[in-house]
């Protein structure tokens, strides 16, 4: 199934989902809306062949949902139970926006993102910064893995029980690395014309199709329904 959405549609979905997660679901109907807006990005992840992350999210979400409903109903205290429901509550509460944000980040290529931002008349500088933020998370993770390995070899993962050292030992090499990578990344980008005065062009031809409009309408009506049922009634 080919289901590529416009980055603008994806952004719209992110906005709607993050609005809805701020409000709690109190009736079965509201729960249905919440679950629906969580499942759609999951299905889209599958459509974009991100099977393993889709499966992981799905399992986590469903488990949390089940625990939340089943245990919460029969809950009569106990620290483990309350801690467990607490965590599951968090998952159920925020998972929808995490999944949607993940879907957006993992399926949007950098140049798609840049040209979508251009179409929305976001200033170039902001777009560059945002694109770098998106690109940099995996880099930080990669660097951190190496630093963690190095700390294990030195036996200083816990900083010798000193919290300040624990922070320092992680932060210092990470910052040195990030600054270096940043310098090299900038050099490589500017020698390829980033930051020029000409308007940037793009090979991705972004157009809102029927799919996009349908999806936006679906999410918008979900939000309206949610708010209407919850606050107006």
């Amino acid at each position: 199934m080919e289901m590529k959405l416009d980055p603008r549609t994806k952004l719209f979905m992110v906005l709607i989902v993050s609005t809805i997660v701020m409000m709690s679901a109190t009736t079965p109907l509201l729960w249905a809306v919440r679950i629906l807006i969580t499942l759609i990005p999951l299905v889209l992840l599958v459509a974009e062949k991100k099977y393993s992350s889709a499966l992981k999210f799905f399992l986590l979400y469903v488990t949390a949902l089940v625990v939340n409903f089943v245990v919460l109903v029969n809950s009569d205290g106990g620290i483990v139970v309350s801690l467990l429901t607490g965590y599951c509550g968090i998952v159920v509460q925020f998972m929808p926006s995490v999944i949607t944000a993940w879907y957006f980040i993992r399926t949007t290529k950098t140049d798609e993102f840049i040209s979508a931002m251009q179409k929305m008349h976001v200033p170039d500088g902001l777009t560059i910064s945002l694109a770098v933020v998106m690109r940099f998370f995996p880099t930080i993770a990669e660097e951190y893995r190496h630093i963690n390995d190095a700390m294990k070899m030195r036996g200083i993962v816990l900083g010798g029980g000193n919290v300040v050292k624990m922070v320092e030992f992680r932060m210092i090499p990470l910052l040195f690395s990030c600054v270096n990578i940043g310098d090299e990344l900038s050099a490589a980008a500017v020698t390829r014309g980033l930051g020029g005065t000409v308007k940037r062009s793009s090979v991705v031809d972004l157009r809102l199709t029927v799919k996009d409009i349908f999806m936006m309408a679906l999410f918008l009506s979900a939000a309206i329904l949610f708010i209407a049922v919850k606050y107006i009634r």
Partner: peptide
């Protein structure tokens, strides 16, 4: 451009 990258 370099500054925007640093900000990011």
């Amino acid at each position: 451009a370099k500054d925007f990258i640093t900000i990011g």
